[in-house]
Write a protein that binds this DNA or RNA. Structure first.
Lengths: 200, 200
DNA sequence: ACCTGAACACCGTTCAAGT
DNA sequence: ACCTGAACACCGTTCAAGT
């Protein structure tokens, strides 16, 4: 259950080069947040304080940069989830985590969706991170099942699928409508809950 | 319950101009299907047998062309749904329609998703078509509720939200995995069904 | 009233030259 | 070993000229 290294192999890398990679990721996050995914690589390089070409040595393509950023933020989300799971004891953890992830997604302007539909599993880094996420969800489901909160037969991929619908609404440009998101989340919660209660 | 005209106002339009608009939409559908949404406007114009500039008189921007195409295909899907609803009598109609829409989405290479997240409600044509779709879903839900198949309190926007998750899986580049789609659809069906049955 | 090919502008990507 | 600004290529968009 080890969290993966952020950059694969970082062998004989000069200190400034490593710093540049970090700066580029941070700058990309800022620019995408402000301008949307159409934000230009020129501005990203400028904010990172490097030349365009340096960006393209670190990330062979703009898409690769987006994928790396996505993987980076997925890892953060997974780390938070592991912490939530470790601290939780006698109360359910999955739906609480779902709310947290929705908030992260909204901050990122739907980065996951924009990148994911094109390149989700093609990139090995994303594939590995995705596998980690599925494992985390499986553990959360098992945890909540032992408390009798989630019914049997629900899988991590089921949860992902249901959550994608909520994400879609939550990240829609018009649609941050918090009430609708809350309502949909409840509906998803009911879909995987053990008893037909209505109140939770 | 009138289906909207395809092009809003078509007042004093020369015959060849009207034909060009149709050809451009058809060519765009072909190119996007073959090359994905990155397909160039040059190729679209060429296949339609017109110059680039003609494309831009009919659609002020490439995005506008995608939106118009999306609206066009949404209208077809709505028309099919109305027919399904009219023919159905003593059996449920919503989930059957869902399967049909999924098939349409897969043909379009996820056009809806790619366009929708950016521009869903901003375009008035899309907003109107979306309203028509919601009305159709409401009628389908009411129909199935009278048969005791769908529980009370389920709204069209709930169904849309749940379906978006299924669409996302169904249209993911890797993921046409038919078994997973079928499984997810069942789960969604259970989420809105009246009784906890398990078999349907 | 509508069409067109050529030109423009922008942005992702590469390259020759620097340290 | 790494960096850079200038050049390249591509594609969405516009324009001057045609019918």
């Amino acid at each position: 259950m080890v969290v993966q290294q952020d950059s694969g192999e970082a062998r004989h890398q000069r200190a400034d080069a490593a710093r540049n990679r970090e700066r580029l990721l941070a700058a990309a996050a800022d620019v995408f947040r402000e301008r949307g995914l159409g934000g230009g690589v020129g501005e990203i390089a400028e904010r990172a304080g490097v030349g365009r070409a340096t960006l393209f040595r670190n990330f062979p393509t703009k898409q690769a940069l987006m994928v790396a950023l996505l993987a980076h933020e997925m890892r953060q989300a997974i780390a938070q989830g592991r912490q939530t799971l470790a601290e939780a004891d006698d109360h359910g953890v999955l739906m609480q985590y779902a709310e947290r992830v929705i908030a992260l997604q909204q901050e990122n302007r739907g980065l996951l969706q924009a990148v994911a539909w094109d390149a989700y599993m093609e990139d090995p880094e994303i594939a590995a991170t995705h596998a980690d996420l599925m494992a985390l969800l499986d553990e959360m489901i098992a945890h909540d099942q032992q408390l009798g909160l989630i019914r049997n037969g629900i899988s991590a991929s089921d949860v992902m699928m249901l959550m994608k619908g909520v994400f879609a609404v939550a990240c829609s440009p018009l649609g941050g409508d918090a009430a609708a998101v809350e309502r949909h989340l409840q509906l998803v919660g009911q879909a995987i809950a053990t008893a037909r209660d209505g109140s939770r």
